[in-house]
Every structure is written in C-alpha cells, then in structure tokens.
Design a protein around this nucleic acid. Sequence first.
DNA 1: GTATTTTATTTACAACCTGTCGTATAATGA
DNA 2: TCATTATACGACAGGTTGTAAATAAAATAC
Lengths: 219, 219
Amino acid sequence: MEAAIPRKEDRRKERTRQLLRDALLELIPEKGYEAISLQDITDRANVARPTFYLHFKDKQDLLFSSLREIYDDLTKRQHMYCEPLELLVNNLNGVGDSDFQHVAENADFYKVMLTDKGSMAFLLMVLEYLSNVIGNELVNKLAEENNSARIPPDFISSFLAGAEIGIVNWWLKSNNMRYSPQQVSRMMNYLSLLGMNWALKLDIQVPSEEPDFSEYDHG
Amino acid sequence: MEAAIPRKEDRRKERTRQLLRDALLELIPEKGYEAISLQDITDRANVARPTFYLHFKDKQDLLFSSLREIYDDLTKRQHMYCEPLELLVNNLNGVGDSDFQHVAENADFYKVMLTDKGSMAFLLMVLEYLSNVIGNELVNKLAEENNSARIPPDFISSFLAGAEIGIVNWWLKSNNMRYSPQQVSRMMNYLSLLGMNWALKLDIQVPSEEPDFSEYDHG
DNA sequence: GTATTTTATTTACAACCTGTCGTATAATGA
DNA sequence: TCATTATACGACAGGTTGTAAATAAAATAC
C-alpha cells in the first residue's frame, strides 16, 4: 500500500465541476430537467462527455450537488428566524419568509421543476428539506414546551412540508404570483397556527388585527 | 369527405388497451415507473411494440388512461361522504377516509410512485385531483356559508392537497404504516379544522373527547 | 524550471431506447 | 362470405447511456 499523500486539490477538478453545475442550472429553465441529456450539459459547459463521469455518477447526482449549497444556505436563514423561539410565537410574520422569498427569486427554476418536465427526486429532496427544517426549527421546539402532543410531531412536520409545496405550486401558477412572498408566508402561518395549537396543546394567539392579504399589481 | 359510419367498436381494440393498462400497473411495483420501457410493457401484455402507438401516445398517456377510472371512482366516493354538508361539520370522522383507504389498499403502488422511481406527472395529477376534490366538496361549500374568507379558498385547497400528499408520503414510510387509514384521516382533519375555522370565519367545533391516535401492531 | 502525477480530450464501442415506416396476417363486424 | 381494420413483423434512423483505450494538457511537487 502506498502512503496516502494529501496532495492539494487539483484546481481543474473544482473548475470543471462548477462548469457542469452552472450548465445544468442554466439549462433547466430553458428546456426542463427531464429533457436535458448529458450531451446538452457537457456541450454547454464545454467539457467532453466522458469527463462528466469523472466527477458525477449521473444527472441526478449533479443536480443534488448543484442544490446542496443553496439549501444549506436556506437552512441557516431559517435558523436565524426561529431563534429565539419567543420571537416566533409572538410574531408569525417572519417564519418561512425566507423560503418563499427564495422561491420568488428563482421562480423560473421552480416553475419548471414543479412540472412534468421536473424531477421526482428533486421534489422529494425539497419535501425532506422542508420536513426537517419545519421539524427541527419549529414543531419539535414547540412540542417540547408542553410534552403532551395530541398528534405526532413528525406528522405535523410532514403535513406542513407537503402543504408548503402545495402552496408554492399554487402560487407559481396563480396568475403571475399576485401575492407577495410575505403574504403567502403569513397565510400559511395563520392557517397552520390554530391546528398546531390544538395538536400540541399550546396557546399561541392569532394576532387580532386583520392581516392584509389583498392582491397586488405587478409593476 | 366520407360519411362517418358509426361502426361498433372493434373488440380487439379495447382488449389490447386493457392488456396494456394491466401490464403497466403490474410492472410499476416491480421495477418502478421510470425504469419501465415500452418494450417491457408490450412484452408483458404480449403485444407488438409498434401496436402500442395505435392506442397511446406514450407511456404517460397510458398511465393516465390507467388511472382515470380509479380516480373517477374515488371522486364519487368523496362526493358521498361530503353530502350533506351538515354531516360533515358535525362529524369529522368520515371526510377523506376513502382517500387513505384507497392508498392503504394500493400501498405497493404508491410506495413506488412516491419515489424517485415514480413520476412527476403522476404526482401533479394526484395533486390536482386532491385540490379539486377538496375545493369542490369541502372548502368552497364551507366558504359559501359565510361569504367573508380571510384567505382565498383555492389557497386552502392547495394547502390541504399538498398536506395530504406530505402525509401519505410520511405514512407509507412510517414504520410499516402504524396508523390506520381512519386515524391518519382524522389527524389530518383535526389539524386542519381550526385553521380553516379562522380562515373562513366559521365556528365548527372540535369534538371534545380525545381521539384515539395510538399506534397499532400489524398482525 | 523540470519532472511527475492527475485530469481532460478524443475516438470508439455496445447496448439500449424511441417513434415510424412498409407489408403481411388474422380477427372482426356487416 | 367479404371488406374492413387491428395487429404482427422486421427494419430503420436517431437518439440516449456508460465505458474503454490511447493521447494530450495542465497543475502540483520538488
């Protein structure tokens, strides 16, 4: 056995990987994920097709690699919002905003991926991400407050994760996104809160003033 | 132009179509939807591959054809449960049962389809089906009771449709389905009710007796 | 700066897939 | 029985994937 010499990472490696990642994200809004072939990707990245296999197993592997950093970043932003917990229970108006904000910023991407041109693996990845974030940052923390949940916390997390996907799908298709990310996020929180109150035997109050959910014109 | 002669449908036509439909549904739990080729389907159905194109456009067309009858039937069953409305608001314990019952009966199928071996088109079809059923049979009817919704009814429908998919996904993966269809359905209803109350300015009461959501052993 | 190692290119290949031709066969309805 | 028409069959072009060889290029180590 040779002694493993910890060589410094070859610069070309990361460079090629980045080219491939960028090419994929660039192509998705153009022709949809499913329709993209490895040839398309490597052509766009100016890389030979066999080279692809030196770095990624297949298209899905590349997709996941492309998205990991994005979602890691989102997780951090969520963490900021939900800490401390008191801020959450007294003010629903920040929780989840970053998610919907992110979707709005990448609307072209999500509009395609939440289509039959998208990918099941991606949707499941998002579902799991949401389920984990909602579970770790919200439901489990609330469940600890009062240790007598009527409904399993992971049921609630999965419920809300699915609901959020349903909402995003509705939002992206609803007449050019007539609601702001903050509005959608708030609708979601208000609609979830009372059921969660009951499920976790909590007593978080819905703000008494009526929220402003009026549509807005795009300008 | 020839006069359209209304010939009786050739028996072979429906026979072949049914063979193809059955073959697909048979193959899905075996190797996943995505991995199935037309060759697989026509082999299983004992039909020549070019014949496939005489009846269906592609694999997805066949899938939709296979599922249409199933979902039409489900819609009817939903309709029964939600009519009359009074029965609904006073008794949460029937709404949506048929959906979860159906999933339990076809667990093998859904376990594969809600996987990266499944299909986005299928998931979107289910999402739309759920959104329509929940909208038409539940939310819109409740919204008419009191014409001053705080949140758009179609937001609520999409929210619940997504939530149901999230729940089904959780349920199928949760340790061999430790909850009965009725339990899962009830959890879902109880968790949704209070938020919907607020959103639609209603006053449906959550039953005061504690529901039984204890897990059960499979025997 | 030079040598060595790693990475990338190129070309080629086998295997599979799809969609669509004709033409021949056989079942069906009239 | 007879005309119709669904189906079988074989074949084709064009696309895909994953892998293999030998060659060229680039980065690191010294």
